[in-house]
Amino acid sequence: MSRAGRSAKSPDDAGAGPLRRLSRAEALAATFPPLMVEAERVAATVSQGVHGRRRVGEGETFWQFRRYQPSDPSQRIDWRQSAKSDRVYVRETEWEAAQSVWLWRDASASMNWRGTSSLPSKLQRADLLLLALAALLVRGGEYVALLGSGQLPASGRAALQRLAIQLHRDGEAAAGPGLPAAQPLPRDGRMVMIGDFLSPLEDIRTTVAAFARCGVRGHLLQILDPAEENLPFSGRVLFEGAENDGELLFGRAETVRDAYRSVYAEHQQALRDLARGVGWTMRAHRTDHAPQTVLLALYLTLSRLAAG
C-alpha cells in the first residue's frame, strides 16, 4: 500500500505467483457444492456457452420461416413447410454465438489498502473474486478475457491461466488508472467491473455510458473496506490520499463521522442509480464479509444477464 502500488499481504493470499492465486481462487470456487451445482445448472441452461442472440444467424435452434426471396440460395428452401402451403419458405435459425465476458478490476493505488491488518486489501479481494468468477465462467463454458489486455475472449483452462498471469503482471506494474480505458466491444458481451469506484462520479458515468453504448451489459462490483465506510478514527488525524491527492487535517475526526457516512452512502446510491440508468447492475461488498455470497450472486447475475 505504498504509493508505488505494491500489493500488501493478506491472510488468504500468502503466496506470490499468479498460478498460486489461481489455484486458491479455484479452490474457493470449488469448495462450495451448492455453488457448483448452481454453476452446473446454469451451465446446462446456457447449453455449452452458446447463447441464442434472438436474431437470425448461424445456429441450431429454429428461429423462423421466411418467404423465399429470389436472392436466397435455393438449397435453403425448407420443402416440408413449403409443401404445407403454396408459398415457398426458407428456414432460418437463431444466431447462437458464444458469449464473452470481459472482466476488469481496478488496480489503482487506492485499492491496495486495507483498514486493519487482519483484513485483506481491496485489491486482493478483487483479484480473488475476479479469478473465482473467471473459473466458474470457464467451467460453465463461457469465454472470458481481461479488459484492457488486448486478448480475445477465450475459454478453457489455458485462458484461465493466461488471465491469472495477466492479473499478476498488472499487479506488478505501476498502479493503473481508476477506470478502464474505453474500447469498442462487440454487442451482447457482458462485463464485470470490480473496483472501489472512488473516482469522481462524472468519470464513472462517462466510462459506463461508453461501454453501455457498445451494447455491453455490465455489472459493477464495489469492494469497500469497513474502515472506509465507518471512519473509525478519532482525535487529531491527518488524512492522506492514497493516490497523491492531498491531505486533510481534522481536529476531531469523530465529529465528522456521521457526516462522512452520509456522504459515502450518497455516493453509493449515486453509483447504483448510474448503473440502473444504463441497465447495468451494481453490488457492494465489504472485505470483512465472506466472498462466497457475493461470488454466487455475481455468477447468478451474469447468467441472468445472459438469459435475459
Partner: peptide, 13 residues
C-alpha cells in the same frame, strides 16, 4: 496529528 492514509479522501473533502 496521527497520519492516516485514507483512499476516499475526495469524499471527505
Amino acid at each position: 496529528p496521527r497520519r492516516v492514509v485514507f483512499p476516499p479522501l475526495r469524499l471527505l473533502a
